[in-house]
Design a binder for these strands. Structure first.
Lengths: 349, 349
DNA sequence: ACCCGATCTGACAACGTTGTCCAGGCTCTA
DNA sequence: TAGAGCCTGGACAACGTTGTCAGATCGGGT
């Protein structure tokens, strides 16, 4: 009795604002419940005349099938979950879009959430999605232990990890070749004469960050260049830290003549720092950036194909759901070096 | 009998891969169904000892509450739908993120879909979301007739339109001040001495595009400058068309000395065209762009706050759901002109 | 006129959860 | 020690849909 106001909306609380049900439609059309169900789902075995009557009642009442109930009965929700780090990041937009496109092609809806790079929030989100009984999950892991997913996997929730591998769980993974990409990018700088090269990346617990650092080290080692601790900086990618890191590398005792940046957020900040810097410091960034070719100099990048990552993952997911692809696999997509100028600058004297 | 292979997953089809239910948990713990429900939902009235036994059974079986069933019973799904144009567009990423953030604060999940600017697909998506019984909808309209939503609105589905108003339906709308923003931007160009100014925008049936054109015309009229048809080009925003439009304006009989672009996609293409162009053509764009200040010249823009749009809309939505805000409103957020160089170039001789 | 089969229709149970309501056991007091 | 009152636990129905199955209706052939 507490909530009597509200002029028209949601009067009786429980019944979704009193939406008409198949029962209501059946009553109005003077037919049985199942006949309405048949019409709604286009099943055969209904006289045109009956169908017309039912359709009329549906339109008159504004009936819309309740998919929640349907799902409960049928067992498949025709929806998949996507957990990523931050939808506002330009890297995840295309990825998300690609996943959605594949889902749509399979008649599924996409539910998504951002983990904000917080493992706890990732778990919370993933479990909420499982409680909704999504058919499958595409997860860009924030945490490194996914054992909490075991009951779900066992229960048949299709799962694909993207961009970073899962921790302690045997599941599909779709990755970019971070190690190879970073190695190539750094080798590119070395080929243009640089020997004092800096690396600024994300927190080392993030797999891609660690791999890219590994690629950096490998390239340096291949070229026989000893690496100094002061040339490497890993940590959160907020502008302040990155800016400080870059400035230290540029002005320290052993100043770098080139920088390799570990992802697009870092790159953007470093571009800003370099714009204020007198010498022509070379730069190669991991991840492509819109308008990169219009900067002066154009930005040389190691590009990964976010859309391809998403598409591959989603297709893999529906492959699992269709009963193929029972054996978890690790798929690594190649990266591509795009030279536009900033990575071809010679070392400053 | 057709699908017998599949080693472990989804054996009996219907029951979500044989997930344990409260009944199973109750049986294992040796208690009643409702007691399990009480434990799962943290309701009072359960002995610690009993609770321990139930919790043990839950862990052992890997039970997870089925929210589909819960929703069916309770009437609220704690999820909202977001229909936008293209997640990969950098304008919608932050907007989507803001909506998600508010939803999260209200304990709701976000289901989203892209309409790809296709009215039919928008309707299809919206209705699919309604069939899921989302509690509310945030819609960036692609179409201009939303009467199909009437039964849903009447049934109490909270709805807020963003970025563009709805057609033939009385509902909340949250907009940027497209007219004022465009007028200010064009006035800015006029103030810097330009008289022959071009406008390139999206398809005229899109409300924001029409409003921005109106702003352009108003600014020109205020300054007493007659507008030529050849200075205005509206249509799809794919690079080819925009490029052609820009080139025609720049080389036609009455070449423009400045261009105002109607959204970020157009702006990006026009920047590319101007980069190839010898004369210093001035440019002001609607929507801000990352790295805009690092271009030469820096890009002057009329910025709108995508995150604020999303946040405002979502808060409005939950306001509706909480029973306040029964009267639909139209909220217009201001834009902000950011001068960075490209809009302050003097007219070429 | 009667029966058979084909076609159409509807009653009923089930999906997994939660709200209602009642039963039984306990404690506390008179 | 009996009765009142509280606390815990469980049986049952309901949410809106679909699958099963059996009943009703109709046409045509004998």
């Amino acid at each position: 009795m507490t909530d009597m106001a509200r002029p028209r909306h949601r009067s009786s609380g429980n019944r979704y604002g009193n939406r008409p049900t198949m029962k209501d439609v059946a009553a109005r059309a003077g037919v049985g419940l199942k006949t309405v169900s048949r019409v709604v789902n286009g099943e055969p075995g209904v006289t045109p005349e009956t169908e017309r009557r039912v359709q009329e009642a549906i339109d008159a009442l504004g009936f819309r099938r309740n998919d929640s109930a349907r799902v409960l009965r049928k067992g498949r929700t025709a929806s998949i979950g996507l957990v990523l780090e931050d939808l506002a990041d330009p890297f995840y937009g295309p990825l998300s879009r690609a996943v959605e496109e594949v889902a749509r092609a399979h008649g599924a809806l996409l539910i998504n959430g951002s983990s904000a790079e917080d493992p706890e929030r990732e778990q919370e989100l993933v479990l909420a999605l499982c409680a909704r009984r999504v058919d499958g999950l595409v997860v860009i892991p924030a945490g490194d232990d996914h054992r909490y997913l075991e009951p779900e996997l066992k229960a048949g929730v299709a799962t694909v990890f993207v961009d970073r591998p899962a921790g302690h769980v045997d599941a599909d993974v779709v990755l970019s070749d971070s190690f190879g990409g970073a190695r190539d990018g750094v080798a590119h700088l070395i080929a243009h004469g640089h020997r004092r090269i800096g690396f600024i990346g994300d927190m080392p617990r993030i797999h891609t960050a660690a791999e890219r650092l590994r690629g950096y080290r490998a390239a340096m080692e291949d070229a026989g260049i000893p690496v100094r601790e002061s040339w490497m900086s890993l940590g959160v990618t907020d502008p302040e830290r990155v800016r400080r890191a870059a400035e230290e590398m540029l002005t320290g005792p052993d100043p770098v003549t080139a920088i390799f940046t570990g992802n697009n957020r870092v790159t953007v900040t470093v571009i800003r720092v370099l714009a204020e810097h007198p010498h022509g410091v070379a730069l190669v960034g991991f991840d492509d950036i819109e308008l990169a070719e219009l900067l002066r100099p154009g930005l040389t990048v190691v590009a990964q194909d976010a859309a391809a990552l998403g598409r591959t993952a989603a297709e893999r997911l529906f492959g699992q759901l269709d009963g193929d692809l029972l054996v978890p696999e690790r798929i690594e997509l190649p990266t591509r070096l795009i030279a536009r100028g900033s990575g071809e600058l010679p070392p400053a004297p």
